[in-house]
Design a protein around this nucleic acid. Structure first.
Length: 959
RNA sequence: GGGCGGUUAGCUCAGUUGGGAGAGCAUCUCGUUUACACCGAGAGGGUCGGGGGUUCGAGCCCCUCACCGCCCA
């Protein structure tokens, strides 16, 4: 005898181990089977399974299990990502917490040792957690983006090196001094994608840049109609800035070429109003399309080394780029004294030839009294100094705003919202910084990646994500791939003492290239996403031409969340298409489909994050409700294009569903249901059996359709509804009289069919709820294989419209009688008699055939055919037949009248609506015939029913 | 500022070529009929964000407004 409920805690680990041991997770070695491969989005190696992983991996496992049952050769390729910044950050924090030497004190080699240790210590965790979820990955093929520690000629490392070297040799990878996003906390460059622009309260300060030599001009301001609203003599140009500390690095002031206000002074020099008086720097006033005359004063200071827009302006106009900060974003303290540097800069401003990048970079234009200050401290000090000197633009506040009668002018500072860049990991303000970095020519790589989606070689689901993909790909910027970190793939570039660069897959090769010169390797590592971009083929053995690569590339589908379309999907597309070619040299896509799923949020719709403390731990949910419930909950909510809000209640509901299924199986066991050898469902004779088989076939088709279209929620719902609302609620109840009756043939057929249909339910539910279905599979029959590798049900020829319509009729008879009973407050235990009045021969036959079912399920003592409604009856109309329930002594005539009147009203509403519609000539003329016919039929049905109900009411009135 | 998505029952959400709205949970009533109370039977509850348009017909298509969310600048 089976237990009353499924015990996930006991069963899951055992079942999982069985699967793994049986080799079920490995792709089957059948050359005729279709290949189906999904590569897992590799989680951070030292991460923990969060609810987003749970969703992502549930959906993958659903497809994987489905395809496996279909008979495909299925590979779900697992592995983890080394997650450069994230992992290094964790280990550095640990060192700090344990008061151990810092990364820098420790040195690179020792530090990396520690990271590998940490990986070893915590690395397996998430893979264990995926197992708990039921993920059926081929663990024997697990890969790590960094490869194996200390391995010689490690393949995963070789793949990265080869890609870098080839891109370099093809001119698609280059090194240069560029303005990049600099994270002062981690002291590394990061890519555009790792920057989050957040709107914060900022200020806009207005300062006067005095014209050189005390020159003056007439400043004229006009309104929209050209009327002069302000005209004054000025000896300065007014500049607005949100970042005063960068004034020190200004190379010019720019105004729009059409801006008449400043036309008189274009080409003049003006003075940066900060720094020691005797060394005030002069910079030219230039024109450029960039300044918006409507914004601020219309004049923009150009600080090429600390602002992306300014950088472009500076490049266009040959304005020197003066770097002001060090790697921690403190004001530079290196280099020559300010006086000397300022003099150099002065010469450049006056037209001297620009020296080399490196020479300009060596110029430190931070005056001594600001050197070494944090950038924000420097800002405060500079504002104070400028204001003290009287070079802040002053305004006179409205008298009402201040107490004094004669308000004093105050510095003009606007409070305004500004977009400030923050590091997505460090959460500190990112500094645009001029540094030497490696860049991939993403624009070039993107071309094929765009084309592949345009021409449908790769398709996004839902399709609207393609727009996002195109938008980004078509405006893609060079990809900064170097990171000033230690944990990662060290860039395979070596330098000789003269600055010569040698890019090669190994040090030996580089030395050979250099002709034996003394070389030093580039200390930087590659962006983590550089290696994960290779994941669809590196995990399959590339650069070796392995069987797996041959068989499983392109992958079938990639399943991921939208937040990494740019980070990952786009880059896999670029790298895959660039490096994987077919025998004709045609680029090969990494995957045919990309399914983008939602983000999982908390009950309130907030993005889950550790800092908000609203994280729902999937493992806790699994502990409480079982993996099946968690999986089903996620899959059933995975509608396209919407976020998922996770609630415990819903998980609980699906746990209950598992129990329901369990008990249905238990019922089958108790009634000795089993599928006899050679059972052919097409041969069943009982209507009930024909009907449930017909329903089953429709359900299997619905599940298949849902999965084929990546509508996981619909597939899950179809399986759920069938199992609970059709199989359990109706079929098992219909089966009871047969299973407990004396007709041995009918009993045998019913046992066989019920067991057969239960198996179907187990199979279609297995992708969603693998554990409980596997456990039941084990317990409900003699099985040749585990369910995980059982054949997907391929049903055909079982649809049966006649059985469907008879059972639908039966269900509505039972439901209606139950409703009347409930509404008339008939005690649940009372056995009533029913009289069917006006039944045709056909209906009479139906009643005859299903008498025991109606009696049992509607709790009737007897059901007879009659010519007239007995007195004191409650009545309900189904089709042409009135079912009367004599309730002598029980019936409340008032209540019954009210009930029938209510039904009549409802019918009237429907009839009026339909009559109006059918009375509309245009409807009849324009609507498809089928629709018109359907509406006519409905009207006919409702009208007939109304007549019967009216009769019923009149009988009551007479009583 | 540009783009995308959302607004449907008290809550969370389905609703796939436009033919008068569904589920789960919650609520109310009844029920222990030996598969299941992690259950069963029944009920109530929505002018599908507002306005306009196209159409014989709009939750669904178009326009517009409002609010919410995300991405990009």
């Amino acid at each position: 005898m089976m237990d009353k409920t499924f015990n996930p805690a006991e069963a899951e680990a055992r079942i999982y181990a069985d699967w793994e041991e049986s080799g079920a997770f490995k792709p089957k070695d059948d050359p005729n089977a279709d290949p189906f491969c999904i590569v897992i989005p590799p989680p951070n190696v030292t991460g923990r399974l969060h609810i987003g992983h749970a969703l992502n991996n549930t959906l993958q496992d659903v497809l994987i299990r489905y395809k496996r049952m279909l008979g495909d050769s299925v590979l779900w390729q697992p592995g983890t990502d080394h997650a450069g910044i994230a992992t290094q950050m964790v280990v550095e924090r640990q060192l700090a917490e344990r008061q151990e030497p810092s990364r820098r004190d420790m040195g690179r080699e020792k530090f990396l040792e520690r990271v590998w240790d940490w990986k070893a210590e915590s690395g397996g965790q998430i893979m264990t957690q995926l197992r708990r979820l039921g993920a059926s990955c081929d663990w024997s093929r697990e890969r790590f983006t960094m490869g194996e520690k200390d391995a010689e000629n490690d393949q995963m490392q070789a793949a990265v090196m080869k890609v870098f070297v080839e891109l370099y040799n093809q001119g698609l990878m280059y090194r240069g001094k560029r303005l990049v996003n600099w994270d002062p906390k981690f002291e590394t460059a990061i890519s555009d994608l790792e920057v989050e622009n957040i709107e914060v309260d900022g200020h806009m300060w207005h300062f006067k840049y005095p014209l050189a030599g005390g020159k003056t001009y007439t400043y004229v301001e006009k309104d929209a109609d050209g009327n002069v609203v302000l005209e004054e003599e000025r000896d300065y140009i007014s500049i607005a800035t949100t970042r005063p500390e960068t004034m020190l690095g200004d190379g010019a002031v720019a105004v729009h070429p059409d801006d008449e206000r400043y036309a008189p002074i274009v080409g003049e020099l003006c003075e940066i109003p900060v720094g020691p008086k005797e060394h005030r720097r002069l910079i030219p006033i230039i024109t450029d399309e960039y300044p918006d005359p409507e914004f601020g004063s219309g004049a923009v200071k150009i600080t090429g080394a600390h602002d992306f827009n300014d950088y472009e302006v500076a490049k266009r106009n040959n304005i020197p780029l003066y770097r002001l900060m060090d790697t921690r974003a403190a004001m530079r303290a290196d280099g020559a004294p300010y006086a000397q540097c300022a003099e150099q800069a002065m010469a450049l401003a006056k037209g001297a030839d620009l020296p080399s990048e490196a020479e300009v970079d060596a110029i430190n234009l931070v005056p001594e009294n600001y050197r070494g200050l944090d950038r924000f401290e420097a800002r405060e000090k500079i504002i104070a100094d400028i204001t003290a000197e009287g070079l802040a633009v002053m305004v006179t506040p409205e008298a009402k705003d201040v107490d004094e009668d004669a308000p004093q002018p105050v510095p003009y500072v606007e409070n305004k919202k500004i977009q400030q860049p923050f590091g997505d990991r460090s959460h500190v303000v990112i500094e645009p910084m001029l540094t030497d970095q490696w860049f991939a020519n993403a624009g070039e790589l993107a071309k094929e990646a765009i084309a592949a989606v345009e021409d449908g070689r790769t398709t996004f689901h839902p399709k609207n994500w393609e727009k996002t993909y195109f938008e980004w790909m078509r405006n893609i910027q060079p990809w900064c791939v170097s990171r000033q970190l230690w944990w990662g793939h060290q860039i395979p570039a070596w330098y000789d003492e003269d600055g010569g660069v040698y890019v090669a897959e190994s040090e030996e090769a580089a030395i050979a290239q250099a002709g034996g010169k003394k070389l030093t390797r580039d200390p930087d590592v590659l962006d983590t996403w550089f290696s994960s971009a290779l994941w669809p083929f590196s995990t399959l053995g590339w650069p070796e031409n392995t069987q797996e690569l041959e068989r499983f590339y392109p992958n079938a589908v990639l399943i991921t969340a939208f937040d990494i379309i740019f980070f990952w999907v786009a880059r896999m597309m670029m790298q895959g298409l660039h490096f994987m070619k077919d025998e004709n040299g045609k680029p090969q896509i990494p995957f045919k489909d990309v399914y983008i799923h939602a983000l999982v949020r908390d009950e309130k719709g907030q993005k889950m994050s550790k800092s908000k403390g609203n994280v729902i731990d999937p493992l806790e949910l699994i502990d409480e409700f079982g993996a099946d419930a968690v999986r089903f909950s996620l899959a059933s909510q995975a509608g396209q294009g919407r976020d998922i809000r996770m609630s415990k209640q819903r998980v609980e509901g699906y746990r209950n569903f598992g129990t329901k299924l369990w008990n249905a199986a238990r019922f089958c066991e108790m009634n000795e249901c089993a599928v006899p050898a050679g059972f052919d469902p097409k041969t069943v004779s009982q209507t009930v059996n024909k009907w449930i088989l017909s329903e089953a076939q429709a359900t299997v088709a619905a599940v298949e359709k849902g999965l084929a279209e990546y509508r996981f929620n619909e597939a899950a719902a179809a399986a759920y509804r069938f199992t609970w609302n059709i199989f359990c609620d109706w079929h098992l109840e219909f089966a009871k009289p047969l299973l407990q009756g004396d007709d041995e043939a009918a009993k045998a057929e019913c046992r066989a069919t019920t067991a057969y249909v239960l198996d179907i339910a187990l199979k279609i539910l297995h992708p969603f709820m693998p554990f409980v279905t596997e456990a039941l599979w084990e317990q409900t029959g003699q099985r040749d294989t585990h369910l995980i590798v059982a054949d997907w049900p391929r049903l055909e020829g079982l649809d049966d419209a006649a059985a469907q319509s008879e059972m639908d009729w039966l269900i509505s008879v039972i439901t209606d009688i139950r409703r009347v009973r409930a509404e008339m407050n008939v005690p649940a235990g009372a056995q009533l008699n029913a009289v069917a009045v006006g039944a045709s021969g056909e209906i009479a036959g139906c009643i005859e055939r299903n008498r025991p079912l109606i009696q049992r399920m509607a709790r009737l003592a007897e059901i007879t055919l009659g010519d007239s409604v007995p007195p004191a009856s409650a009545q309900t109309v189904i089709g042409e037949t009135t079912f009367a329930l004599p309730l002598e002594g029980v019936i409340d005539f008032g209540a019954e009248r009210e009930r029938i009147a209510k039904e009549l009203k409802k019918l009237d509403g429907e009839i009026t609506r339909l009559e109006k519609k059918l009375g509309n000539e245009k409807f009849v003329a324009n609507a498809p015939e089928a629709v018109v016919a359907e509406q006519r039929e409905k009207l006919g049905d409702y009208t007939a029913q109304k007549a019967k109900m009216a009769e019923a009411l009149s009988r009551l009135e007479q009583a």
